[in-house]
Each structure stands twice: as C-alpha cells, then as structure tokens.
Amino acid sequence: MRNWILSGRAGLLLLAVVLALAPLGFGNPYHYDIAIHVLINAIVAVGLNLLVGYAGQVSLGHAGFFGLGAYVTGILSAHYGWHTLLSIPMALVVVAVLAFAVARPILRLSGHYLAMATLGLGILITIVLRTEGWLTGGPDGMIVPPIEILGWQLFGEAYWYALMAALLVLAVWLALNLIDSPVGRALRAVHGSDVAAQVAGVNTTRYKVLIFVVSAVFAALTGALTAHYSGFITPDLGGFMRSIEFVTMVVLGGMASTFGAIVGALVLTLLPQLLTGFDELEMVVFGAVLMAVIIFMPRGLVPSLRTLIGRFLR
C-alpha cells in the first residue's frame, strides 16, 4: 500500500482526478486561462525534466524549441494556408530535426559548457524570430488562426482546458513509462555515472541525443498549441526568460520527479498572479519564496514531501 501510494501510478490517477474536478472551482474564463497556462508549462516541464532531472543534461534554451514550434505552425497556417492538423505535426518535425542536428555537437559538452551552448541556441532562435520580420512579423508578433477540425473551430477556454489536461495526463503517463524501462534506466545511469553506463553497454551519446530530441518535441508541441490557443505570438515566447522559468520549475518541484515538474509549473505560474497585490515588491517576494524553497528543501518540493509522507506511512 505504501509503495503504491508513493508510486507514479497512484500519482497519475490523482492528477487525472484533480484535473477533472478543478473546473468546479473555476468562476470565470480568466481562471480557465490561468489553468491552461499552468498545464502548458507543466507539459514543457515534464519533458524538460526527462532531460535535466533524469539524464542530467542542462538545457537553458528550451523555450527556443517552444517558440519555434509556435512559429512554424503559426507561419504555415497563417501565411501559407496549411491546415492546422498538418501545420502542428510539421512544427514537431522541424523542431525534432533541428534538435537532432544540434544535439551531437552540443551534448558532447558538459556542465557549464553545455549550459552556455543551449543558452546560445535559445537566443539564436529568438534572434531569428525577431529579425525575419517578413515571415514572423518581427518583435510585434503575428496573428495565428485557431485550430480547425472538420469545419469546427476549437474555441473557448473550457475546450482548451480539456485538451491540455488530457495532454498533460498523456505526457505524464509516457514519462512514467519511459523512466521505468530499460531506456529510462540507461538515461538515469548516464546521469549517475556516464562511464559506468558505457561499460554496461549503453551508447551514451545516442541516449543523450534521443532524450534531447524528445524533450524538445514536448516543448514544440506545447508551443504550437499555445500559438493556436492564444491566437497571437511574439518572439518572447522563445526568449531567455522563459527558458530560465522552465528550468526553475524543474528544479523547484524536484529534479528527477515527474510530479515535481508539475508542482513546479503550478507554483511558478500561480505565484506571480497571487503576488500582484505586492506591487513593486512582487519580484522581491517571488525571489524570496524561491530561495526559501531551495534552502529548506534542496531536493525540491515533491521529493522532500514524499520523504515526509513515506515516513508518516511507515
């Protein structure tokens, strides 16, 4: 029983129930909108956590993949009249190919160098989005048409909430499956001891590239959907600040904890909303909360709480 409560399967069930019941507490479209942004960030964080938390590879440029996903589907559907059911998969393909192409040289680096390289990649993507105004609308952004399925437009916060909630549950299910598999153990071994993984027969380079591409695709899918949800995108979607936010979600919630990534996304999305009352002090309080968590729960929120609950259930 104790094992089941602490296992991912119980968490997945709990997540589905919470997501299904949450709308009962939503009073207006604004609540839905915030919830959708929590879900968007959570999906990206779950994917990024596979790379950062489990495989131990830093990426400070993941918003770049998010932004690129948004712009590819945005440009194809708005300027070239592509059907959204084609332009979104195309966005995933473009990001997957780019991530695959840069992964080998980038992942040969480690530590600070890997952080710098991914940071550079993210910045490069935003520069392109900003300067190629003829295609992207430049810094002012561009309008993106809604998703259309058989003549029916996906419109309204409730539908989007349902879609993103289902996607998050799917993403968590896939992530939990992956982690508890030979591939997932190989990835975690790369983090624990690269050389031990190698002599155990793990092609470490291949696995690092694989998970880099997978986490980039998570970001791209979410970015593409965000573009059609909000109907308007700017290069800031892929910006440096967003990349830092995604990594902070993973670290705050707890590295190598899928549910930690979700809690991290929840806290980091809601906190600024709750702190608007503090006016100029908002960022100060925000920073103080983050520092307090990292100082008192260095492993992140969820792993620390799990230990507590585990002790309680013994």
């Binding site: 131990g56 030979p182 153990r185 190989a186 975690r188 071994a189 983090h191 624990g192 001891s193 050389v195 031990a196 993984a197 155990a200 793990v202 190598a256």
Partner: peptide, 15 residues
Amino acid sequence: QICMNMSALENVMVG
C-alpha cells in the same frame, strides 16, 4: 562508479 541517483537493484538492472 555507482549511480547514486538509482536504487541498488536498478544499478544491477542497468548491467
């Protein structure tokens, strides 16, 4: 060269 981020059993499973 033990993977300290994994359980003892999982370390062997990686083998």
